[in-house]
Design a protein around this nucleic acid. Sequence first.
DNA 1: AGGATGATCGTCT
DNA 2: GACGATCATCCTC
Length: 202
Amino acid sequence: MDVPAPKSLSIPPLDLPVDTQALARALIGVVLVRTLDGVRTSGRIVETEAYLLRDPASHAFRGVTPRTVTMFGPPFHAYVYRIYGRYFCFNVSSEHDGHGAGVLIRALEPLEGIDVMRARRGCEAVRDLCRGPSRLCQALEIDRSLDGSDLRSPGAIHLEAGSRAGALRRSRRIGLTNAAERLLRFYERGSPFVSGPRHLSP
DNA sequence: AGGATGATCGTCT
DNA sequence: GACGATCATCCTC
């Protein structure tokens, strides 16, 4: 007979799909936790974008490069890249080992460590702390050193089960010129913490 | 509320 | 040598 898991102490198992688009949807409501010097900052994911296999908009489209190796590794690892010389963006790798794809995290609803995030961002308004892919990287102090981290086990950065997501909506991805027509951006309906348009198709 | 602009540098051609 | 999966700021309506 099995010993029942302790009720209040167990962390609910986080079961995520490998398929990129399914993962982009499943990640809404999941909590991203960043632990630095023993201090947790975290937020609930409210907006994602899928970057599929053979997707002209994806960094993986033209094959492996030194920057994008983690996109081609096993799923559920951190792909962090620098953009416009000054910012970072955070992704969760998807698909199986050897296949390049991932999900960009575009916005969080701040949960833990709000004052720490305020200090890092130089910004008071809770709504603006993690509303945008590079803003959330500033708030959680995410940079290239975290690239390759396994997000399923507790560490410097990982994912935890969160509250169930509300209704999902989808739209075009933001800031693209390639394959811009595809509806691969997902966000929680009505969330004030979403970046960009919040008024598109169901 | 919404559109235009400049910053800034790693990455790939 | 060109170009961003962005942001903050400045502008007009």
